[in-house]
Design a protein around this nucleic acid. Structure first.
Lengths: 195, 195
DNA sequence: TGACAATGTGACCAGGTAGTCATATGATTA
DNA sequence: TAATCATATGACTACCTGGTCACATTGTCA
């Protein structure tokens, strides 16, 4: 988390630094992003950065937190009763929605899929835990075959959804169609056969 | 392709340079790999590198070509009649097989999945074209639903197979099991329903 | 006003990168 | 032997990185 000196800054300056981070992390993966570039974007001296943040991870986590607050209104309320695949499609639609008003945010998420740094991997693992639970519940509900490996399932979805977004060239319609196709294939593949 | 000066070198020296490239490209993605590191591994001066190769792309393509020759014996003969999914599983098994004798080779392949440089993307696109054809043929054969998007299908498989390898920690058994799981899900998801 | 603490600042360090080029070496031919 | 040509070489340029630190500035309180 940012140091106290950062929190003492004016809202304007904090915003400027946040925006600079968003810009950099939406253009380069976390691993490739440059602190030098962030301070350049923000117009603050090198020394100040280290007075505000411990390192790159520190500002990244701060940024993610702020982004979450920012898109809070855009995101549909989480309906616990929805099936796993409903959740996935909802999230894909949210990605597109976010991409419309805050294209950088969606890009930041997408870039995690090609980052294999320990830091990012850990972050994703935490974020996916919730979905693992939903899959398990859907198995008990009889929606998903119990022999399906939840870890494999969430990985398939996750890497496809974000890879696709990364390479869709921001063609939102094409993106959603492809995600829909993929999700339908996987849904069909893991569904308990009726009758 | 390498310059003539390179081809004039002794086999020993060419081998040394090839090995150095393999080492570097198996530790870092193409985008992150360093020419400085390669010349250090090979024990050749900087100037010599540029006398042999135009740039990083040049030596990468040379390396890939040599690797293909090297694993020619390991790879099963390509059976055109095999279904798409048989091809995929065969290739996953080959990856494991190659990984046993030449772990670096498999790693080099896996690292392409997290590289979004134009150079690597183009390379993959070319390599996937063959599989698109096989998918189309399987549709006509009645094995795969005709409405399935071939591009989506190959992407799903490709990114999963290599992502999984990248993060499997070289647990070959676990890797093959997960690929098998994923392939089964997708196979089930795209299969023409019997009866 | 004076003293002290908090914060701002950018030059600097050590390390990395790709690529160039003048010079050195060695082999080949006249 | 002398001239010519191919190749070898590493110092050098220009540029980037994360991080530090001595010093300057500003704010606070007695």
């Amino acid at each position: 988390m940012p140091k106290e000196t950062f929190h003492n800054l004016s809202e304007e300056k904090k915003k400027r630094i946040f925006d600079a981070a968003v810009q950099e992390f939406s253009e380069r993966r976390f691993s490739d992003a440059s602190i030098n570039q962030i301070i350049k974007n923000a117009g603050i001296p090198k020394g100040s950065f280290y007075q505000y943040f411990a390192d790159k991870e520190d500002i990244y986590l701060y940024m993610v937190e702020q982004m979450a607050r920012d898109i809070h209104d855009i995101i549909e309320p989480f309906n616990l009763n929805d099936s796993f695949f409903a959740h996935v499609m909802q999230r894909a639609k949210e990605t597109v929605k976010v991409g419309k008003t805050r294209p950088e945010y969606a890009k930041i998420g997408a870039l995690t899929v090609i980052d294999n740094s320990d830091f990012i991997l850990q972050l994703l693992k935490t974020g996916n835990a919730k979905y693992i639970e939903i899959i398990e519940r859907d198995k008990q509900r009889g929606l998903i075959k119990p022999e399906i490996d939840s870890g494999v399932l969430i990985k398939m979805i996750y890497i496809f959804v974000f890879n696709e977004y990364l390479y869709s060239g921001f063609d939102e319609t094409g993106y959603l169609e492809n995600v829909e196709s993929a999700v339908q294939i996987i849904k069909q593949g893991v569904a308990v056969q009726q009758g």
